[in-house]
Amino acid sequence: MHESILCVILYISMACPGERILALTEYIHAVNLSFSYQNEPEAPQVLKDVSLSVEKGSFVAVLGHNGSGKSTLAKHMNVILLPSGGSLFVNGMDTSLEEHLWEIRQQVGMVFQNPDNQLVATVVEEDVAFAPENMGVPPEEIRRRVEEALRTVGMWDFRDHAPHRLSGGQKQRIAIAGVLAMHPDCIVLDEPTAMLDPRGRREVLETIHRLNRESGMTVILITHYMDEAAQADRVVVMDSGTVIADGTPKEVFSQVELIRSAGLDVPQTTDLVHWLRTEKGLDLPADCLTVEEAADAVAKLFS
């Protein structure tokens, strides 16, 4: 008797899995998400059973070596790709339902690697206006949004410049402004700093951190730079289509062997501390991320 009741409960919970209800409280929520670029059953799975949730207002960095499926995952968040298996919810909306398409595209802004290939117009302000124009926003409101977005990224003074005359970092900030003009809740940035010099990188990172801090924007930053990931609230590490580590930067980077096995480096400080711990047998905490933390730990050890 008890067993059958248990079976019924189990059956019900499987028919309407808890995650689906949970999806409403999380901003982005992937449930056993699988994806393959080809339709054949034998085709390689680029995403395998990815389950992930991103809270509203958080700053999440996604790491992974080339071809691990980071961009593919990002494209799901904007309904450029649809899951082959499992499902993805954005703000409680199932991405596989056609009716949510434009709502999701407007709520999740995407910024790509090459700033040259995402600017559409010959004048900066026209480019920023592109998305709200597409959304059918009235002209006065577009003007307001353009000004607000350009001021947010600190490019208002360049509003009548031609994009091709700007530096890489400036172009990338214009691209961010172009997305902000949609008034999204979340921005997904796919290696936005990969083609920039150190100064451009700093400009872009400062901008997205400020957005996250001041406007509570949910940020998902795909990157190859460990130092960028170390500044996030949370780090997700992907390896051949699965999530192999997920936690705060300290939790993730202290698993040095795991990170290395995914073909990635750990931040230099963590690397040094790891070496001191394993090779030299020093009793240091594994989760030092910054130089200061490491220095303090070493000083404490010797005092």
């Binding site: 904007n78 450029i80 434009w102 595209r105 407007q106 802004g109 995407m110 790509f112 290939n117 995402q118 559409v120 592109f130 998305a131 597409n134 959304m135 691209a175 172009g178 997305v179 949609m182």
Partner: peptide
């Protein structure tokens, strides 16, 4: 792709 992401239709 970028245009589609910015709601171009």
């Amino acid at each position: 792709l970028a245009m589609e992401c910015r709601c171009y239709r």
